[in-house]
Design a protein around this nucleic acid. Structure first.
Length: 606
DNA sequence: TCGTGACGCACC
DNA sequence: AAACGGTGCGTCACGA
């Protein structure tokens, strides 16, 4: 058997590499003697559901001894590794949302069984400090956490490994994990070290989770399990439609690129070229970015179209349409086509605790950033055969949460009476609903008059008037914001009602209100998600998106599903109902967005 | 040839 | 007195 040594600071680490069947006895004994085991895999990439995806190595560790099983070399070894997972009483994994679906898909293990005995160090780390490294926090990757909690040198070696090794082996970095020899010393050494570090992080982080947040540990693991099940099941792609849309977008791009070319612009994405051309045609009003660079943006292209100069208008429109068509194709449609699995399902990656407020992020199907109120992209996704799409979302979720948290009597009363809060704010200032709405949102975001003007396009005098009226009308919100802001100043953090500790930047204490609202709103959605799960809805969930959950439900039960998802998702918070609305239509997700008046079948308020 | 910063643009 | 919160992704430009 091959053994490697590593020195973690001063402590010797032993890494055992299985090379022949004779080496397995030691591994079996290790599994028998260690009820709690840290687990990790090395794979050929990150796209778990791609045809070419393979598990290369499986690693099992305690604090100082690691077993590396090159499962790629033997079905029997894969089987033994799978069995080790079944035998373990407790698994410690860094980012179980990756490794568990990997072994479920490739070794046929049961997802729920694995999640139920897993502690994810990434979840623990997020509950200790949810900030990214850029924001002054610990980050949540194994490397960043190792650097912060264990040892900087080790972290640097791991972080630099793939780059350095790719260079040494004269291959691209992306190819390293696929092409490196399964017997490569460094590859095996660092594969062996990963679960050692994970195990040690578990020991350290377990003690650091604040007492207020301890109740969230179980909750967050449940949320992760449900979301990983959703991701694992995937969302059915309408491949024929997607391909048609892709060529349509390509045609639009080509047509408009040719127009731009006739004005001397080869690359519509190059700001420098576009600006040169505009100057040539007599347009000198070029926006300047925050860093002082001239740049092309939507406002400029819009201004050209309204300029009254035929050529400039034509050029502005062409550039806008070309770049949009290209972006839509690259970002959405072609990505869906290329990442769909063999059965035609796309698998969103759901990071249940991505943002510092705890908000989720969804990549793969970047569901959170699809064009709003626009059907064509969502028409790529279908409910199952015989099913329809159902979307249930919270109504004015963040504003209701703000009302509940602040207990502002005017806001609470307005919601309880079913009034339109944007109009209530507008009326208090005698301005348009648009100004009222902008002000409501700006305040939730922690902004002031400037935010209302620049973000929501409100006249400055109206913005000033409405902002003032907001403060005078919702005295409870103002008091709540002061309270939170003072707390953040005094102790550097706030604690949300669920017990989540949110560290607030000392130079931005006013952001505490937004942090509390955003984080609590996220908790509302996640609690709803768990109630849905408990009642067996998980197989029908396709995507959670901030304040909304998208389902595929059997057509004959759509009315029941609409009613029941409403009942399960809504919840009362400090006397105010955070209510929902369910909407069902055709088979495609996009059908919820097209022709809303004529085709809508069910719209049920909670 | 890569990784990264800056930017714009999608969203809640 | 005033304060723009949280994300992901594609592209270009630039420097190692």
């Amino acid at each position: 058997m091959r053994q490697l040594q590593y020195k973690l600071k001063t402590e010797p680490i032993r890494i055992n590499i299985v090379e022949t069947d004779d080496d397995l006895d030691g591994f079996i004994e290790f599994v028998r003697n260690n009820q709690t085991i840290a687990f990790d895999t090395e794979t050929t990439g990150l796209l778990i559901y791609a045809n070419t995806f393979k598990i290369r190595v499986a690693q099992f560790s305690n604090a100082s001894e690691s077993w590396v099983i090159p499962v790629e070399r033997s079905v029997k070894w894969s089987w033994l590794a799978a069995n080790a997972l079944l035998r373990a009483k407790q698994l410690i994994i860094q980012n179980a949302a990756f490794d568990i679906p990997v072994v479920v898909r490739h070794w046929g293990l049961d997802m729920r069984e694995l999640f139920e005995k897993t502690i994810d160090t990434k979840i623990l780390a997020k509950l200790v400090d949810s900030r990214s490294v850029d924001a002054g926090g610990t980050g949540d990757s194994l490397e960043d956490l190792t650097a912060h909690y264990i040892d900087k040198t080790t972290a640097a070696e791991i972080k630099g490994l793939a780059t350095a090794e790719a260079k040494r082996l004269k291959i691209k970095k992306d190819e390293y994990f696929t092409k490196v020899s399964i017997r490569d010393h460094n590859y095996l050494l660092y594969a062996g070290m990963d679960p050692i570090l994970t195990y040690r992080l578990w020991k350290i982080l377990g003690k650091l989770v604040p007492s207020s947040a301890r109740q969230l540990i179980g909750f967050e693991h449940e949320v992760q399990r449900v979301c990983t099940e959703v991701s694992h099941r995937g969302y059915l792609l309408d491949l024929a439609y997607a391909k048609k849309l892709s060529s349509k977008l390509r045609a639009t791009e080509t047509r408009n690129v040719n127009v731009a070319r006739s004005y001397g612009i080869e690359n519509v994405n190059s700001d420098a070229e576009v600006i040169d051309a505009l100057r040539y045609y007599g347009w000198f009003n070029i926006p300047v970015s925050e860093k002082g660079n001239e740049s092309v943006n939507g406002d400029l292209l819009q201004a050209l179209q309204g300029s009254g100069y035929k050529d400039l208008a034509k050029l502005g429109k062409a550039i806008q349409e070309a770049t949009r068509a290209r972006k839509w194709r690259n970002t959405w449609v072609d990505t869906f086509i290329h990442t769909a699995d063999a059965e035609g399902y796309c698998h969103p990656s759901i990071n249940t605790l991505q943002a510092r407020t705890g908000r989720m992020s969804i990549t793969g199907i970047p569901a959170q950033t699809l064009p709003a109120g626009e059907a064509s992209i969502r028409l790529c996704f279908l409910a199952e055969e015989g099913h329809v799409s159902l979307s249930t979302d919270y109504q004015a979720q963040e504003l209701r949460v703000l009302a509940a948290l602040s207990q502002d009597p005017v806001m609470l009363d307005a919601f309880k009476r079913g009034l339109d809060l944007h109009q209530v704010t507008a009326d208090a200032a005698g301005v348009t609903r648009k100004a009222g709405k902008g002000t409501n949102f700006a305040v939730v975001f922690g902004g002031g008059v400037n935010a209302i003007v620049t973000q929501f396009g409100v006249e400055r005098t109206d913005a000033e008037k409405t902002y003032k009226a907001f403060k005078e009308t919702y005295l409870g919100v103002a008091a709540y914001s002061r309270r939170l802001s003072n707390q953040a100043k005094r102790q550097g953090y706030i604690v949300t009602p669920s017990g989540r500790k949110l560290l607030i930047d000392p130079d931005r204490p006013y952001s505490a209100t937004n942090a509390a609202v955003q984080s609590t709103a996220r908790d509302v959605t996640c609690r709803g998600l768990l109630r849905l799960d408990k009642e067996g809805f998980t197989p029908y969930i396709r995507l959670p998106i901030h304040d909304e959950i998208v389902f595929s439900v059997p057509a004959e039960h759509e009315e029941y599903a609409a009613r029941r998802t409403n009942e399960l998702m809504q919840e009362e918070m400090a006397g105010l109902m955070i209510s929902t609305e369910a909407e069902a239509m055709g088979r495609s997700w996009g059908s919820l967005y097209e022709d809303p008046d004529s085709n809508r079948k069910y719209v049920l308020d909670s």
